[in-house]
């Protein structure tokens, strides 16, 4: 799938024992986009919007989309080291990072493990924190109707992303991706219980975005991330569920754009 203006190129990288699929477009400083558990392999309008300012690199995580599953990746830490290797393989010194949901958690972990690699950090409705008082809903147990209701405010739009009549290929792909996701997030469920002890290591300017009506991951997670990351800012995207980049792409990218512009103004971008 390609955006209206978009001319993205597809690249393959052999790394870690498998072949990784990534999409890339735009020019300027490098921006690594980290996709959520569902959503690998698609180049969507928000990618194009980001590519107006950046060299956007959007890989499919190992075991997602068109990337091979790597047997040695069975936890978030493995995925973090995989991405550090990928940045080296792509010869990228430091990147801006935008991550959504699972990708947001991954972005935070990257910024914890190797702060110097992350020039700026944008997390959109990230999972990752262990907040027993504000549990993340169990998406593994949800049927398609429940998923649509949990992820989107606009249920008509939701049908575009979660089909009521999935093909065999779609079901096969969903099973593969959910399996890869389970290896990262089944237990501990959707979090690293140690992450809150480590987020003080993040040095990148940080923006946290949250859909006003996220019924999957409570806003309390966003508030906690803001408390734990120095000088982090939290912004709410109105009329929006768990996936602002899908449900409100223009407004979401606009907020991200302002954040990046401010950084540039400070000489940080």
């Amino acid at each position: 799938m390609s955006g209206q203006n978009g001319q993205h190129v597809v690249q393959h990288v052999d790394l870690g024992g498998g072949r990784i699929h990534l999409m890339r477009a735009g020019a300027g400083e490098a921006l690594l986009f980290l996709h959520p558990a569902a959503g690998a392999g698609f180049w969507l309008p928000f990618h194009d919007l980001l590519a107006e300012r950046f060299d956007v690199i959007s890989p499919d995580h190992p075991g997602f989309g068109e990337s091979d599953r790597l047997d040695w990746i069975d936890g978030m830490e493995d995925l973090v080291y995989f991405y550090l290797d990928l940045l080296d393989a792509l010869d990228l010194e430091a990147v801006h990072v935008v991550g959504a949901s699972l990708g947001g958690w991954l972005a935070a972990e990257l910024a914890v493990h190797q702060p110097s690699k992350v020039r700026s950090l944008v997390m959109v409705d990230p999972i990752g924190l262990d907040l027993p008082e504000h549990p993340v809903e169990d998406m593994f147990a949800m049927n398609p109707d429940e998923l649509r209701a949990a992820l989107f405010v606009d249920q008509e739009l939701a049908l575009q992303f979660i089909s009521p009549e999935p093909t065999l290929d779609m079901l096969m792909r969903a099973f593969k991706e959910k399996t890869s996701f389970a290896r990262l997030a089944w237990n501990p469920f959707c979090c690293n219980p140690k992450l809150h002890l480590r987020l003080h290591r993040v040095t990148a300017p940080t923006l946290i975005l949250w859909g006003s009506d996220d019924r999957l991951v409570p806003l309390a997670h966003g508030e906690r991330y803001r408390e734990l990351i120095a000088d982090a800012r939290l912004e709410i995207v109105d009329d929006c569920g768990h996936a602002p980049l899908l449900e409100q792409p223009e407004r979401t990218v606009e907020v991200i754009g302002r954040f990046h512009a401010e950084l540039a103004g400070k000489g940080g971008c």
Binding site: F140, A141, M172, F175, K176, K178, T179, A182, R183
Partner: peptide, 15 residues
């Protein structure tokens, strides 16, 4: 969704 959780079967068996 409970009876067939991700990875309980191989991708092949699921197909």
């Amino acid at each position: 969704e409970h009876l067939f959780p991700p990875g309980y079967m191989t991708d092949h068996s699921w197909g």
